[in-house]
Computed example of a mutant assay.
Amino acid sequence: MNANTHSRRAATAVTEAVTAVTKPRTSTPDKARAPIENEPQAPLVAISDIRRWMVEADRQLEMAFDAAGSGEYIEKLLDHICHSVMVAPLHTIQREDLTQEDAGRLYESLFVPMACIHAAVKLAEGTILQHPLEGAFELLDASLEALDPVNDAVKALPLQEGQTDEEKSALFQASRIEDNSYCMAGEVIAIIRARLHAVDSELLYGALRVVEYAHNELGAGVYARDLEMCEDASAPFASAIAVLEVTLREHDDVALHGALRLLELAKTSLDDAIVGVN
């Protein structure tokens, strides 16, 4: 099967996946019935349960990634899932001071990895990868349902109250950085990794290392909700842009030009967010 066929299958699968994970949830007949008096109730889901499910989902995804054939499309997709789109949600759920607002952002952020996993399941049908991928999807689906704002586990979390206007502004900007710059840098990493085989260049490998360093620096700041740490990532982003520009002088690649533009937008968005609280 050629690369174009793989791409068409992946595009179709992603479209189906987005529809599948974003459609309104409906109660099953069993869930919808009126409770029976004195009927034993299922134990409430706790945040620790959700954390455990997400960590186990990540373990199964990594297991599938390790088992995927090198150079195959599904390996690249799993690389993107494990090392880009799952990173921020896993950071968030590990917070000891998780708030209702954090849970709300986590709820929204899970739709993207679930859509990608659904696409990977489609590509893995009939292979040894299908079972761990389906297991990971089911665990994240259970986590998503438990993170619904109407559920007791979320309602029991503290609100972000008692903060000064400055602290609220800093928290808002940190969330903005996570949603924009951090995610865009993750997409750049995925694009570069996808082009490594076609553009066999030491320069491109170097660009990847610098972008990954900048991404990790920013991730540490976002996780700590520390704007000074986030600001420290601006210089590595500038270095990553410079290295990628040098790479493009040697290898004129359309996808890498897109990655460069995305990386520039990530740095601009980061700098604008920092200026917004100064």
Results as ranks from 00 to 15, higher is better:
D49S: 08
A266W: 05
S48V: 01
A259D: 01
H83M: 08
G71F: 02
L196P: 02
S201Q: 06
V275L: 07
R8Y: 15
A119M: 13
A255N: 02
T15P: 04
K168P: 01
R33E: 15
V112F: 11
P24E: 07
L196M: 10
A42V: 04
D66C: 04
T99N: 03
L244T: 00
E228Q: 10
L262R: 09
F137Q: 14
D165I: 11
Q163F: 05
A11R: 14
T28I: 12
L256F: 10
T5Q: 13
G71D: 03
L90V: 12
G162T: 00
V45G: 00
M54R: 02
V246C: 08
G135D: 08
R249I: 05
P24W: 09
F65P: 02
K155E: 15
T247H: 14
D49F: 03
L244H: 04
A153P: 00
Y213K: 13
R261N: 08
M54G: 01
L227C: 05
E245H: 08
R95Y: 05
W53R: 08
V150E: 15
T164C: 06
R261S: 07
S7L: 14
E37L: 13
N216D: 09
G71I: 06
G206S: 11
R8G: 10
D58F: 00
E96I: 15
A34D: 06
S109F: 04
T22S: 10
E178F: 04
R8T: 12
S70M: 07
L139S: 13
P40V: 06
V21Y: 13
A34R: 11
P132W: 05
A57M: 01
A10M: 11
C183W: 14
L78R: 01
V277N: 00
G69K: 08
I74D: 02
L248C: 11
L171V: 06
A20E: 12
P113K: 07
R225N: 10
R33K: 13
D49G: 06
F65D: 08
A235T: 00
V254W: 10
H131W: 07
H197F: 04
L78C: 01
L218H: 06
K76E: 01
P113N: 13
A64T: 02
V85C: 11
E264G: 03
A266L: 02
S109Y: 04
R51N: 05
V211G: 01
I117L: 09
G69P: 04
H118D: 02
A11M: 11
V210Q: 12
H257A: 02
I191T: 08
E134Q: 12
R52Y: 11
S143N: 07
L133K: 12
L262Y: 05
E161Y: 04
Q160K: 06
P24R: 02
S84T: 12
A174L: 03
N2L: 02
D49E: 00
A266G: 01
H251D: 13
C116D: 15
Y223F: 12
T28K: 05
S48E: 14
P89E: 00
E96Y: 15
L61T: 09
S169F: 04
L106K: 12
Q173C: 04
V254M: 10
H251G: 06
N278T: 13
P132Y: 08
R33S: 14
I177R: 03
G126L: 11
T99L: 06
V211C: 14
E72G: 09
L144G: 09
Q160E: 10
R33H: 09
A17P: 00
D200W: 05
L265A: 09
A136E: 04
A68W: 03
H80D: 10
L133N: 11
A120V: 05
T26Y: 11
